[in-house]
Design a binder for these strands. Structure first.
Length: 745
DNA sequence: TCTCTCACTTC
DNA sequence: TGAAGTGAGAG
């Protein structure tokens, strides 16, 4: 019943600015399937000029068209068209015309990121959410000044391992816990013109990291099973839910679109900066990281050695009180020499127990406190250029084929997580080939769906080819020392089954609608600034929005209609459930603990599969499935990650995983993913590493020495009288908190 | 490991 | 001035 219509049947019906259709005609056929009218498949085509043509059976045409347009223009939830109303492509057309932009992305504060990366960046996650530090900031160039762009960021699991911090190193501690629902953070200024984006540093500092699974700072979009490119649930929000002690990789996306609704039909460019990889923690593990944060985060000034913060006071008081004790002890025993040596040991303890110590020159530390400083110094030594090479050698199996100038990046990787399982390479390394475009960031791996057949880049059983491709990617990446890892898909490709939002296999639910709170269409107040993008999205896709507040239900908090359906569906058997609309199935599956995420879900390649099906191109279906570069990004690992509702997988014997990076293991693990390439993509970071390390060192040294030196022996006599007074305080206030003491003169 | 409170900071 | 972002530390 669907009719192809190049010939307008309803003259004058214009869809050119229909909110839920791309303004600039993407040249695809789209059908509006109205709920409860399955046989009725009106189709409308958007000619290049944006004029709409709708071909509908006789008398039904006008009402349907009015309904569609009316719903969108008035903001009436699309659901009024029926619970299953959705748009779906009838056929795929030629790719959208080549965009004339050439986006380049530069990671801001790269040196700082490098400093953290070398030590194994840790990001604290809290129930209420913590910001990232260093903040994720980028500078864009090469955008079309006039065109509008939507900038997004998300954080994906870097691997499927759980880590532990042992012996000053991060080590694999087993398999990853069930995947948390992923969230996409849309920059609040989106959409904005290229000129606007390029005129400033794009910062994502408002994005928060949380481990609160019932976090409500998000909403989920439930896309029908045969939506062009988005199938399943895609969650957006200001907080990203992460698993503690797991490694993550932030991603940055540029989408040329002036409307959120165009996302599925727009070109996606994804940038990966290996140096922004981090491990989520609920409490800092590595003192070096703590100190780096304190030294660089303005909000942590109070803990700096310099200044009048509590940290300083506390340290001084601790030191002084101990000296007082020592002094008293010495007076009682009359053994000055002994006390002197104890003093050294004590100083050592005082230092090593303080984060400040970690960045103090290791030679001093070693001299003062071999035992305590050893691990520290040892760890530190591995950050030196020499050890770096050593670490690089550890994963030589993954870098041996790379151009020499590209070896630094894996070195960084090895450096960061020296004890990674077999130097397991990153899957992100398989993103694609290097793009000669991006010159600002470590390396570019561009996966364009039109150029290099993405197909060859990914195939679910694809390890060999993928590995080869990863090598190619690395090699190419190595050609550009300043390119980020980039993935690109385009609109047309999306229609061919290449979804633009990889890794967005957001598990349903868990998210609240706060993001869009206060707006009938779930627009978050903070997002109103986004103007047309969200408002039109809401207008056109209100019904497709399934906000989820899984906190109470443990299942997606769908809108009432969907919720009811989903709830009912839960009682269905698998067979009957299969007959449900895809998005409902997903919720059902999710509630049953089955994965839907591209991260090894039941539908590892949701869009691709569905889009292909929708395109009625069964032949292309299977191949296109493997073509999705984004999915490739996330699903190239044959791991199985489960939704938060899934039954947790028992953690396998960690003994086999608790290992330092061994080349052999790297080989063994290599096929699992090509992550090394992602790191390989960071030659620039290596180049900076040496310098930044030195800078870091010198800076921390200077800052530390300022505060530490006066606290050591030299000030002993000078502080005698003060110490005595403090001694009295300490004696009397022993059990009281630091602040009591610090409040004392 | 995680959560919570605290003092201290920025904005 | 107060909201919000910090790490420390106790539990």
């Amino acid at each position: 019943m669907s009719l192809s219509m190049r010939d307008p049947v309803i003259p004058g019906t214009s869809m050119a600015y229909h909110p839920f259709l791309p303004h600039r005609a993407p040249d695809f056929a789209m059908s509006a399937v109205l709920g409860h009218q399955p046989p009725f498949l009106p189709a409308l085509t958007l000619p290049p000029n944006g004029a709409a043509a709708l071909s509908l059976p006789g008398a039904l045409a006008k009402p349907i068209m009015d309904q569609l347009v009316g719903a969108a223009e008035t903001g009436i939830p699309f659901s009024s068209l029926g619970p299953q109303a959705h748009l779906r492509p009838l056929k795929t057309m030629e790719p959208e015309e080549e965009v004339e932009d050439d986006p380049k992305v530069h990671l801001e504060a790269k040196e700082l990121w490098d400093q953290f990366h070398k030590r194994g960046t840790e990001m604290v996650i809290t129930k209420s959410g913590r910001r990232m530090f260093p903040p994720f900031k980028v500078r864009c160039s090469g955008l079309d000044k006039k065109a509008k762009y939507i900038l997004l960021m998300d954080i994906i699991a870097a691997d499927d391992c759980r880590y532990k911090f042992h012996n000053s190193r991060w080590m694999v501690a087993g398999k990853a816990d069930p995947e948390m629902p992923k969230r996409m953070y849309i920059h609040p200024d989106s959409p904005a013109t290229g000129e606007q984006w390029m005129s400033k540093v794009v910062t994502f500092h408002k994005l928060k990291l949380t481990n609160n699974i019932s976090d409500k700072h998000g909403f989920t979009l439930a896309f029908p099973r045969d939506h062009a490119t988005w199938q399943g649930n895609y969650s957006f929000g200001t907080q990203t839910i992460l698993n503690s002690m797991h490694k993550y990789q932030p991603r940055f996306h540029i989408v040329r679109a002036n409307d959120i609704l165009k996302l599925p039909y727009s070109t996606f460019r994804t940038y990966l900066f290996p140096e922004t990889e981090f491990i989520a923690v609920t409490a800092y593990q590595n003192d070096k990281i703590t100190q780096l944060k304190i030294d660089n985060n303005p909000f942590a000034k109070g803990f700096r050695d310099t200044g009048n913060g509590r940290r300083e006071k506390r340290k001084q008081l601790t030191l002084q009180s101990m000296r007082v004790f020592d002094d008293r002890h010495r007076k009682e025993n009359g053994t000055s020499d002994e006390s002197s040596s104890e003093q050294a040991a004590f100083n050592c303890f005082a230092q090593s127990s303080s984060p400040a110590v970690s960045t103090v020159g290791t030679s001093n530390l070693k001299d003062l406190c071999p035992s305590e400083g050893e691990s520290d110094a040892e760890a530190e030594s591995k950050e030196e250029p020499g050890p770096e090479a050593c670490d690089a050698a550890k994963i030589s199996t993954t870098t041996s084929e790379e151009p020499s100038h590209d070896k630094g990046s894996p070195a960084v990787k090895a450096h960061l997580f020296a004890a990674e399982p077999g130097g397991r390479p990153r899957d992100s390394g398989r993103l694609g080939k290097a793009s000669p475009d991006s010159r600002h960031s470590p390396a570019t791996i561009s996966s364009s769906t039109r150029g290099l057949g993405a197909e060859e880049r990914r195939s679910p059983g694809r390890e060999g080819a993928a590995t080869a491709k990863a090598e190619e990617a690395r090699a190419l990446a190595g050609k550009d020392a300043f390119a980020p890892l980039t993935v690109q898909t385009d609109a047309a490709a999306a229609h061919l089954g290449q979804g633009p939002l990889p890794g967005l296999g957001f598990a349903p639910g868990l998210a609240g609608q706060q993001f869009f709170n206060g707006h009938p269409l779930f627009l978050h107040p903070g997002q109103f600034a986004m103007g047309g993008a969200f408002s039109s999205m809401a207008a056109g896709m209100g019904p497709l929005l399934a906000t989820v507040s899984g906190a109470s239900t443990g299942v997606s908090g769908l809108d009432s209609t969907v919720m009811a359906s989903a709830a009912a569906a839960q009682g269905l058997s698998g067979a009957s459930a299969a007959a449900l609309p895809f998005h409902l199935q997903q919720h059902v599956l999710a509630s049953q603990g089955l994965a839907m995420s591209p991260f090894g879900s039941l539908f590892p390649y949701p869009y691709t599969y569905m889009a292909a099906a929708a395109a009625a191109s069964s032949a292309a279906a299977s191949s296109s499935v493997h073509r999705h570069p984004f999915l490739n990004l996330n699903s190239m690992r044959p791991r199985l990650r489960y939704s938060p509702y899934s039954i947790p997988m028992p953690v396998p014997d960690s003994s086999s995983l608790l290992t330092t990076a061994l080349p052999s293991m790297a080989v063994a693990a290599g096929p699992l993913d090509g992550k090394a390439a992602a790191l390989a993509a960071s030659p620039a970071s290596v180049a900076v590493d040496s310098g930044s390390e030195l800078n870091s060192r010198s800076s921390t040294l200077s800052s530390s020495s300022v505060s530490l030196s006066p606290k050591l022996c030299p000030e002993k006599e000078a502080a005698t009288s003060e110490l005595q007074s403090i001694q009295r305080l300490v004696s009397g206030l022993e059990a009281k908190p630091d602040r009591s003491r610090s409040a004392s003169p």
